[in-house]
Amino acid sequence: MIPPAAVCSTAARNRGRTRDPCSFQPGAVAPMHHHVEQQIAIALSGELTFTAGGETRVMHAGDCVVIPPHVEHGGAAGPEGCNALDVFTPPRAGILELPAS
């Protein structure tokens, strides 16, 4: 069985950035990818094993990572899942164009 993906709610654009709250089900995988925007990922609850620029760390509530533009990154939720907040600057147009879950 393929682990479920993250469910991200409707993103909000404000003052030159995009805020995107995400809920990862247990074992959900965020595939490795990169984009032109800087991303700040903040773990709100649960556990997220996150890789950015070839370095892997386990994030818990309150931990954050700053990912510069074009740096490959991705991760996987722990056994309890994870809630996170992603902030992109400049605003990430592709996210705003996705339909709400």
Rank of each mutant, 00 (worst) to 15 (best):
G81E: 10
T10Q: 15
A61E: 05
Q38L: 11
V66I: 14
G27I: 09
V66C: 06
T10S: 13
P3S: 12
V58C: 05
T49K: 08
T51P: 00
I95S: 06
H70P: 00
A6I: 08
C22N: 05
F50V: 09
R13W: 07
I67V: 15
A43V: 15
H34R: 14
A100N: 14
R17Q: 15
E55D: 11
G75M: 03
A5P: 03
G75E: 01
P26Q: 11
D20C: 02
F50M: 11
V36Q: 13
S9P: 00
V7G: 07
R92Q: 10
I2F: 04
T10E: 15
I95H: 09
P21L: 11
G74K: 00
G78V: 05
C64N: 04
A52P: 00
L48K: 02
Q25A: 15
P79E: 13
V58K: 12
F24E: 06
M1L: 07
V58Q: 08
P31E: 10
S101R: 12
V66N: 05
A61Q: 03
M1A: 10
P21Y: 10
P99W: 12
Q38I: 09
D63R: 00
P31H: 02
P68T: 05
I40N: 05
Q25R: 10
F24V: 08
T18I: 04
D20Y: 03
P90K: 04
E37R: 04
E80K: 07
I40M: 11
P69G: 01
P99V: 15
P91A: 13
E47K: 05
L48T: 02
V7C: 01
I40L: 12
V71N: 03
L44S: 02
R19Q: 13
A6Y: 10
L98G: 09
T56A: 05
V87A: 05
P90I: 14
A11T: 11
T51S: 09
A5H: 07
A28I: 07
A5E: 14
G81N: 06
R19D: 14
H34P: 01
R92S: 06
A100W: 13
I95N: 07
E37N: 08
D63I: 01
G53S: 08
G54L: 07
G75Y: 02
S45C: 04
T51W: 03
G27F: 07
G81I: 13
M1N: 01
D63N: 04
H73P: 01
A11D: 09
G62I: 07
A52C: 11
E72L: 08
E37S: 04
A11S: 15
V29T: 14
H73I: 12
R13K: 14
A52V: 11
P79D: 13
T49L: 13
P79S: 14
P26G: 09
A12F: 12
G54P: 00
S9G: 15
M59H: 01
L85S: 01
V7F: 06
Q25L: 15
H35M: 09
G81L: 06
A43Q: 06
G54D: 07
G27S: 07
G62L: 08
A11E: 08
T49D: 12
A12N: 12
S45Y: 07
R15D: 13
D20Q: 10
P69Y: 05
P31W: 05
H33D: 06
G27D: 10
P3H: 09
A43L: 11
S9R: 13
G74P: 00
R19L: 14
T56M: 06
L44T: 11
A52Y: 01
E80Y: 09
E37P: 00
C64L: 13
N14I: 15
V66H: 02
M59K: 00
